[in-house]
């Protein structure tokens, strides 16, 4: 099976470019604005889109993304509406890879089989589910692979060489290296340490490796892009969105642009990177 993710990374590789991956929360601050933001991301330079599934108890997220999830839930977002958003996005974009990122409970309650069918038909390419380590692969990972979706696993600084093969075994699409032990929005990782970690993981897999957590600026994105196959920015975009809202937390005329402009600046940073030789 070849997904949009595989195709996109193959293209980037042939161009000698590192991917720029953006994370935003579905339904933040409301479903309509969120759709417009997601639509604006590829034009602004996002190569891959990660879309957060809102959840009340995001135990691996820092305050910014926690608040984004609560804004979305307050505006009535659900997993079903998240899939609707993806379907609407796919009406005019059939190439940009889109990955849903979140926690297992909303999917478990939706029903795993029904979710996989609906996600696939909506145009989702892959899943990143924070609280499903390889020890729980039977829950969603294996069924997702069978349904033709990529299951993208997180590798972390605590994932040692002994454990890496287990983490990588059923991973597809790309590997998401979490550059620090911590939650989203925390301190940035040192690019050299990231380079060493990426090299270590590459000894175990041929999959592209994207690096996230703690990247906020075009300079930081460029530094990571020189060491990895992609860099992920989330909290900085979510913060830009939040800063554009009115006092009641509603979208303003500036909201979509605020996210698009930062995306463009970050994408420029990534494009300026010198790709490391493989």
């Amino acid at each position: 099976m070849t997904t949009r993710i595989d195709t996109r990374f193959a293209e980037l590789k042939s161009q000698g470019r590192s991917a720029f991956v953006t994370y935003v929360m579905a339904g933040d601050p409301d479903a309509a604005t969120s759709l417009n933001i997601v639509k604006a991301l590829p034009k602004a330079g996002a190569d891959v889109i990660e879309l957060g599934i809102p959840f009340t108890d995001p135990m691996a997220d820092g305050p910014s993304i926690q608040a984004a999830g609560l804004r979305a839930l307050k505006a009535g977002m659900t997993l079903k509406k998240t899939l609707d958003l993806v379907r609407d996005f796919r009406k005019d974009d059939n190439v940009t890879p889109l990955v849903l990122m979140g926690y297992y409970n909303p999917i478990y309650i939706y029903g795993v089989d029904k979710f996989l069918t609906d996600a696939k038909s909506a145009g989702v390419d892959g899943l990143i589910i924070v609280d499903l380590p390889p020890e729980e692969d039977d829950e969603l990972c294996i069924p997702a692979l069978k349904a033709g979706l990529n299951f993208i696993r997180l590798a972390t600084p605590t994932t040692d060489d002994k454990r890496l093969p287990a983490v990588l075994a059923n991973t597809s699409g790309f590997v998401y290296y979490v550059s620090i032990a911590g939650i989203t929005g925390a301190a940035a990782a040192d690019a050299n340490a990231v380079g060493e970690a990426v090299a270590r993981i590459k000894r175990h897999t041929r999959l592209p490796i994207c690096v996230g957590f703690g990247i906020r600026t075009p300079e930081a994105a460029r530094a990571i892009a020189e060491k990895a196959d992609g860099s992920v920015v989330g909290t900085a975009l979510v913060d830009a969105l939040k800063n554009s809202l009115d006092a009641e937390g509603r979208a303003t005329a500036k909201t979509v642009n605020a996210v698009a402009e930062l995306t463009a600046a970050l994408a420029q940073g990534v494009k300026g990177a010198q790709q490391a030789a493989e």
Binding site: D131, P133, E135, T156, D160
Partner: peptide, 20 residues
């Protein structure tokens, strides 16, 4: 051995915590 009581229990945590 996987921490299940029937369907309940398990280890639903982020990868960072799994080795610990």
């Amino acid at each position: 051995e996987r921490g299940h009581f029937g369907i309940f229990g398990g280890r639903f945590v982020a990868e960072t915590l799994m080795p610990l």
